[in-house]
Design a protein around this nucleic acid. Structure first.
Length: 232
DNA sequence: GCGACAG
DNA sequence: ATCTTGTCGC
């Protein structure tokens, strides 16, 4: 797919933070709450893996249909040239994600990203940032917390609690138990989707694992891909 | 100054 | 994320 909005990717921490403030203002300018997501047959999952020895970042996108059957899967890569700094993950993983997106031939109705959406210090987690560039609804599905407070949700699948910014009282997302007795997922909206719909998409794509199927498949694919290219 | 901190 | 074996619990 073509990038709806090609972005610049600063390679310096200070420049990255400054750009985030500008992009976050754009994310805020979208209609809120976002209109309901009417059709979401094609759901894509995105995940990233690093090869330190090769100095590369790999990203995999997997698109599944309403029955979680494979529609398309692609990988993209970019140099590993930005450090891991909490709050600046997009600058480390974004370029490879954009490469994968451009290799895609079908447009997903919604994209699940491995990371935060607006549950971010400047409200511009990976899912929000990529949503701005890709131009499709995005959901942040993180395996751990970056910001916000919450009470531990019940131990059974489907139980949830709110992720809240203690300063503003603003609701940042939902802490969702996706399987009985497993660590919950931190769900937040990226762009063009409301939180209720984001939760519905995640729940709809759960099978027997902690991660929703599109995200789990992307995770497997990118891990396999990295190991393959790392051998040669 | 100290602790927290997506992947 | 990545480096890594077996092991405890549903």
């Amino acid at each position: 797919m073509r990038l709806a909005r090609p972005l610049e990717w600063p390679r310096e921490v200070t420049a990255a933070r400054e750009q985030q403030l500008r992009l976050a203002a754009e994310v805020r300018s979208f209609r809120s709450p976002a209109p309901p997501l009417t059709d979401w047959r094609l759901v894509a999952g995105l995940d990233v893996s690093y090869s330190k020895r090769r100095g590369r970042v790999y990203a995999a996108l997997v698109v599944l249909d309403a029955d979680n059957r494979l529609v398309e899967e692609v990988v993209g890569e970019a140099p590993l040239d930005f450090p891991y700094v909490p709050g600046l993950l997009s600058y480390r993983e974004g370029p490879a994600c954009c490469a994968a997106w451009q290799a895609l031939s079908v447009q997903p109705d919604v994209l699940i990203c491995d990371g935060q959406g607006v549950a971010h210090p400047r409200r511009l987690g990976l899912a929000a940032h990529l949503g701005l560039s890709f131009g499709v609804p995005t959901i942040g599905s993180a395996k751990s917390r970056l910001v916000g407070e919450y009470t531990e949700p019940g131990s059974r699948r489907g139980e949830r609690s709110s992720l809240v910014d203690p300063e503003s009282g603003e609701r940042l997302g939902t802490v969702l138990r996706t399987r009985d007795n497993v660590k919950p997922l931190f769900i937040s909206v990226g762009i063009r989707i409301n939180l209720a719909d984001a939760e519905a998409v995640i729940l709809d794509r759960l099978t027997r694992y902690r991660l929703p199927e599109p995200q789990r498949r992307a995770d497997r694919l990118v891990g396999r891909h990295r190991r393959e290219v790392e051998c040669a």
